[in-house]
């Protein structure tokens, strides 16, 4: 029942692609992705999470959540802190077993299966004893690709995406932005079609952050991955995404879904576009509502 609802939903949104695609090396080709786009790449079916905090008290982290992400789209999830965004990501990545519900990838149940989606956290988590290049190939290496092969495959990407000449450096010698680039390349070169980004730029200063956003859009256009992005920053969400899901405060559920009617490629000029501002204002209003409710609840309790 829920599945068919999601399918109808994704068919409806299928028509509003205003994307101009780049012809750079693409692992999953756009052509294939478009043919199959009637089917969501990633689906969550009534996924919920309840934690036992004591013998008989429980905390509901996630109320049943349904979510469908079309292939090749950039989707953001925003919500007040503690709304369960990270829990949701852990479930999608297979690191955590949801209390109920299933995660579907290409229509197949992948609940509790690891290694099927790329996952990047706010911390870059580069291993200090490995060079940048060896950090980037970690995913390939874990899959059993020979180190020399993996290095040869990764090196051109380092060159193209702003890490030229740093391949032999150790992470300690890199700036925050560079480290995030390396971390993202590690996630992308792992060769999954879906990538989860959990506030990847949260720890960067404003200038580096806006540079990294442009860089991310570029790399996303090149690789053609399906991206699910978590952020606190509404402007960032609107700037990057095709679609935004707003979550409620704990217990988290999807409160609203907004399409971002802005074409691509985007540059910083869209930040003053009336359509952009409208979406941003709506998002902020939805978030403020949540914060007000939360404050009211706290006051009542």
């Amino acid at each position: 029942m829920a599945v068919s609802g999601i399918l109808a939903f994704s068919v409806a949104t299928n028509d509003q692609k205003g994307n101009s695609y780049h012809s750079l090396p693409v692992r999953v080709t756009r052509a294939v992705a478009e043919v199959e786009s009637y089917r969501p790449k990633l689906e969550l079916v009534e996924v919920s999470q309840v934690f036992a905090t004591g013998t008989d008290s429980v905390v509901t982290a996630l109320q049943p959540i349904d979510l469908a992400v079309p292939p090749g789209k950039f989707v953001s999830i925003i919500g007040p802190s503690g709304c369960g965004k990270s829990t949701l990501f852990n479930i999608i990545a297979g690191l955590q077993r949801p209390t109920a519900g299933d995660v579907l990838l290409d229509g197949q149940v992948v609940t509790r299966m690891i290694g099927l989606v790329g996952y990047m956290l706010q911390k870059d988590l580069l291993l200090p004893w490995r060079t940048v290049l060896d950090n980037v190939i970690l995913g390939m290496e874990l899959k059993g690709v020979a180190k020399t092969t993996a290095r040869a495959r990764a090196l051109p990407y380092l060159k193209r995406y702003g890490l030229a000449g740093f391949d032999r450096h150790y992470p300690a010698a890199l700036s925050g932005g560079m480290r995030q680039r390396a971390a993202l390349l590690r996630t992308l070169l792992y060769d999954t079609e879906v990538v989860l980004l959990d506030e990847p730029f949260g720890a960067l200063d404003a200038q580096t952050r806006s540079m990294m956003q442009a860089w991310l859009l570029q790399i996303w256009a090149d690789f053609g991955k399906t991206v699910v992005f978590v952020t606190h920053d509404v402007e960032e969400a609107v700037y990057l995404s095709d679609r935004i899901h707003v979550m409620t405060a704990r217990p988290g559920r999807i409160k609203a879904t907004l399409e971002v009617p802005i074409g691509r490629p985007r540059d910083r000029h869209v930040l003053t576009d009336p359509a952009f501002l409208e979406v941003k204002a709506t998002c902020l209003e939805l978030l403020m509502e949540e914060l007000r409710d939360e404050a009211a609840e706290t006051a009542a309790a």
Binding site: G115, V117, L125, L127, G139, L142
Partner: peptide, 25 residues
Amino acid sequence: DQDSEKLMYSLGASRWQVFAKLVVP
């Protein structure tokens, strides 16, 4: 680091791989 461990698992690492490539170093 728990997050590093999480990252390794999200990359499909086996326990042995996490041990050899993360824990020991």
